[in-house]
Amino acid sequence: MNLTKAQAEKLVKGCINNDRTAQEALYKLFHGEMLRVCYTYLSAEALAKEAFNTGFLKVFQSINNFDAEKGELGGWIRKIMIYTAIDLCRKELKFNNLISPVQDDDDQFIAPHILDKLYFEDILQHIRTLPAATQTVFNLSVMDGFSHKEIGEQLNISEGTSRWHLAEAKRQLREWLQPAGQSANQPKERSGKQQ
């Protein structure tokens, strides 16, 4: 959401003063976007809604800590939602710290010609089929740009385990996206008419 500094300041001040109108306006303004953030980390509807509600409670409880000089309001709320979803993941999941680390030098793990034919919903649906721990690490790394060190700190796992989960997510998604017998870097040859 693109709020002007004055609009954000007015909403924040209203929320600090427990103004129900300001709280409702803030909630409605960020509801859809922040619920999507929670669904990105938690595919189970009940867990995603729980993270969303807990996240907004944290937003309202700590709104006086928001500093407009350090960033925009939407980014601050998004960060709270991500950390709340991660906390819930931690409660729901058991991560295996014994998995051996892997090197992940594969920045472009899916060929662009394949991505051009996909919709976000299709990709998200397949991300949600990943094991929960692998899905969480993938989301933190690819969707939200966290480093393996940050992921390890948030999820209480080693950097090597984080790297393994990311590599495994990429492998599984690549398998789903690549037609059988086709190389990731080779476009599929078309038979018949050229389009």
Rank of each mutant, 00 (worst) to 15 (best):
L124F: 03
K94M: 05
R78M: 13
A85Q: 07
G74P: 00
N97L: 15
I127R: 03
M81T: 06
S100A: 14
I77M: 06
K79T: 14
P101N: 07
S62A: 07
E72K: 10
N65Q: 10
I77N: 10
A68R: 08
L93H: 01
L115S: 07
I86P: 01
F66N: 02
E69D: 06
L124H: 03
C89K: 12
I80E: 02
M81P: 08
I99Y: 01
I127P: 01
L98M: 14
D104G: 08
Q103G: 05
D106V: 04
Y119H: 13
H126T: 01
I63P: 00
D104E: 15
F66I: 02
N64I: 04
N96G: 07
F120N: 12
Q103I: 15
G74D: 11
K70H: 12
K79C: 05
F95A: 10
Q108K: 14
N64Q: 11
L130A: 05
I123P: 08
L124D: 07
T129F: 07
F66C: 01
C89F: 09
I63L: 08
I127G: 01
L98G: 14
K79F: 01
L130H: 03
I99E: 04
D105G: 14
R128Q: 08
T84W: 07
I114L: 10
K91N: 11
I114F: 04
G75V: 04
